[in-house]
Amino acid sequence: MNSTVMKKTLYLFALPALVFYLLFWIFPIGKLFQYSVTDFNGYAQTFNYIGFDNFRDLFQGGTLGNSIRNTLIYTVVSVVAGNLIGLGLALLLNMNIRGKGFYRSISYIPTLFSAIVVGFIWSYVYMPDSGMIAAFLTKLGIPSDNLNFLGSYSTALYSIIFVEIWKNVGTTMIIFLAGLQTVPNDLLEAGRIDGCGPFKLLRYVKLPLLATSITINTTLSLINGLKAFDFPFIMTNGGPGTSTNTLIYSIYKMAFTEQMFGKASALGIISFLIIIVITAVAVLLMNRKEVSA
């Protein structure tokens, strides 16, 4: 069954998927490298090779640094806060409480909404004067005139990160819950007999056994954060100013609204490298941790 002929025919099974993958995923990345050294504008059929001018422009301009900074903040906050909230929710809904099945289901609901709908809903929540938060505060008699979550430089980015967390926390929670269900009861019992309080049980028994869930959740939200696009696009258009410009949103804007395909491709290459390096380092670190835990 392991003859070489067999092996070769078996590889044919991967062919259809490989054709799609090479044609629509890998080949375009190659093209991106080519465009990154041209002044291609997306429409004219002819373009000139201009060497590394695009890269030089990017490193000298402010867009690159600003987008990297915003993307890193977006990623770190959504990974850390998203996982902590998801874990907390999972621990809470793993306790013996009435109606926990119902609570689990409804916590999952935001995950089912399209990003565009979520963006619309939260634009309403954050809106000054008549939005949900402002109206609440007015009802409570707290002045809310200066409140402009999406319109102020200091809060816009964190406001959309919160939306990202809100949308994804259901998935994170479900994966943690599945992990918690694999924690054997007699191990918890043994821990209790040895005098572990709830905190020590969490730290020394549950968390090490949740290593796989933590790795999965962290990796998923890390990739999600580094690729952040939806909420800057739907809710803020990268603004105010450039305060919510993420890398991917900057690429999109550069290519499709400013018609600078060449420069956008160069930014794409840089983003691609950043995403790959950060993801690879994180995965390697977590794998090592997971083995030793």
């Binding site: 375009p28 395909f261 691609f272």
Partner: peptide, 10 residues
């Protein structure tokens, strides 16, 4: 890890 928006240009 590849963002769809990036692939879309080409």
């Amino acid at each position: 890890v590849v963002p769809g928006q990036m692939v879309l240009i080409p």
